[in-house]
Computed example of a mutant assay.
Amino acid sequence: MQTSPPEVHSKNVERCIQSTPDVKNISKSHSQEKKGKSHENGSQHQKIHRNYNNNNILVIGSSLLKSINTKDLNNTSVSTNRGARIVDIINIIKDKDIRQYESIIVHIGGNDISNGATLNLIQENYESLLYLLRSKADMNTNIIVSSVPPRKDVDVEPVNKILIDLCDYYNLQYIDHSKCFYDDYGYVKKTLFQRDGIHLTKIGTMVFLQNIDQYVKILKLSPNNDYCQYCGERGHDLNTCRHGKPVSCFSCKSFGHKEKFCDLYWS
């Protein structure tokens, strides 16, 4: 019989926050921000105007987000944190004003399992993160959990199972990336990943964003501007590609792009 996730209390979150080391350079930047802020007056019940910075969506997570170009996104800010684990995102969120965001997309967990964290610890920390987000965000903010794409160094499916269970339990939206990064035979699409097998190429990042866009409209690009996964050209998809199958690159010998797009795939 499956047990329900443990009840979360604010004391658990506070204890997790207090025991969390600051992310490198984060505490310094936050202290500088605090010095530059003017004193704010008014009641805590004052109405929040979400559109004051025109960035109504926040995407926050690890360095897997590093290739995202915010110029391709609508009203979206991206917080990329190299090597970040769940506790690092907690440490960032605790000092960040997130009340203005209509949607917050959290993408974290891969580095935790890669660094040997137990599944129980991952669940406990992620649950504390969700509680913190809900307590600090506007009551109408949509908190969305992004699944962990496949990694070369570790099996991420146990982590994604935890995320699915948490989303079911707390009635949160879950973005499933699994189908995007596997072919019809169940193999990982290598051209979507850099040579380390962890971080996404520019094409992989676009596939990642296209999938998020199915849940939350963040892309400026129309479907006609997407990259074809058969040849790497823009303006059509694999269903209308004249090649009909993945082409081979003469430079790297990989499939799914032409030689002239090789740098785009592996950068």
Rank of each mutant, 00 (worst) to 15 (best):
N74K: 14
H30N: 09
L64Y: 03
I60V: 15
H177L: 06
C167M: 04
C228T: 05
T118D: 09
H45S: 12
N69S: 15
L200E: 02
S67G: 07
I212Q: 02
N239T: 13
S248T: 12
C249E: 06
K161E: 14
Y126T: 09
S135T: 14
K217H: 15
K35T: 06
Y185V: 03
K11S: 14
Q32I: 04
R134K: 15
I113T: 10
F255A: 06
N51C: 02
P21I: 04
K179H: 03
K189N: 10
D88R: 04
I105G: 03
K136E: 11
Y185L: 13
W266F: 13
K202L: 12
T141Q: 08
K161V: 14
G116V: 05
V154I: 14
S147Y: 01
K217E: 13
V59D: 01
I104M: 10
E157W: 03
V23G: 09
I60M: 08
R99E: 14
V156Y: 01
E40Q: 11
C252L: 12
I92F: 05
I89H: 02
K66I: 03
K34R: 15
I93S: 00
Y230P: 01
T141R: 05
G110F: 00
T20S: 15
P5V: 09
K217L: 07
N239F: 00
Q32N: 12
G109R: 01
L200C: 04
Y131I: 00
G83A: 11
I175W: 03
Q18V: 00
H9W: 01
N120W: 00
M139V: 13
E102H: 13
A137D: 10
